[in-house]
Amino acid sequence: MTDSDPAATPVKRGVALSNRPFAVMLRAGLRASVWMLPLAAAGCWIFRGAEGGWSAALGAAIALVFFSGGLLLMDKMVGDNAHAMMAGALAIYLAQVIFLGIVIFGLSEASWLDGPAFAIGVIAVTLVWQAAQVVAFIRLRQPVYDVPAGSSESSERQP
C-alpha cells in the first residue's frame, strides 16, 4: 500500500470527511431538530391545549426553515475567497433577520396564536439545532490555518 492509495488511509471514528462543511452541519441540525417539532407540539398541546400545540408546531417549523435556509444558502456559495464568503454570510444573516422580522410582525396580532407556546417551539428547535451544529462542526476537524505549499502531512510524520 502506498500513501496515494485512498483505501490505505485510515478513517478515524467520529470524524466526518467532507469538503462541504455546511452540508454536514445542515444534515446534523435537521437530524437532531426534526424530532423537536412533534415533541414541542405535543408538550404544548398537553399543557396549553390545541391552540398551544399548533402554535408550538408553527414556531418549530419556522425555526427549522430559518436555520435550514441559511445553511443551504451558505453551502451553495462556499468558495475560496474568504472575504466574499464572509460578505455572503452577512448578507444571508441580514436576509434571515428580515425574514424573521416579517414573520413576527405578521403574527403579532394573530388571535389564534398562543405566543408563549410559539416561543417554546422556536426556542426548543433553536437550542437543539445549535448544539447539533456545533457538534457537527467540531467533528469535521476543519483546519484553521493554511498548510504551507510544498509540505504534506505524510512528510511531517517521518522522522
Rank of each mutant, 00 (worst) to 15 (best):
L17P: 00
L17R: 14
L17F: 13
S18C: 05
N19E: 15
N19H: 15
N19Q: 01
P21A: 13
F22S: 06
F22V: 00
F22P: 01
A23V: 12
A23C: 02
V24D: 02
V24S: 03
V24R: 05
M25A: 09
M25Y: 05
M25R: 01
R27G: 01
R27W: 07
R27C: 03
A28M: 13
L30C: 09
L30P: 05
L30A: 07
A32L: 13
S33L: 02
S33D: 02
V34D: 02
W35F: 10
M36L: 04
P38K: 04
P38C: 06
P38I: 15
L39E: 11
A40W: 03
A40Y: 08
A40R: 05
A40K: 08
A41Q: 10
G43H: 07
C44E: 09
W45G: 07
W45T: 07
W45I: 08
W45P: 03
I46Q: 11
R48L: 03
R48N: 11
G49T: 12
G49W: 09
A50K: 06
A50Y: 14
E51S: 15
E51V: 14
G52H: 07
G52A: 05
W54R: 11
S55W: 11
S55A: 10
S55H: 07
S55D: 06
A57N: 08
L58M: 12
G59L: 11
G59M: 08
G59Y: 03
A60I: 07
A60C: 05
A60R: 00
A61S: 15
A61Q: 04
A61I: 09
I62W: 07
I62P: 05
I62K: 08
A63D: 04
A63C: 15
A63H: 14
L64V: 13
V65P: 01
F66N: 15
F66D: 12
F66H: 15
F66K: 13
F67H: 12
G69F: 07
G69L: 15
G69A: 14
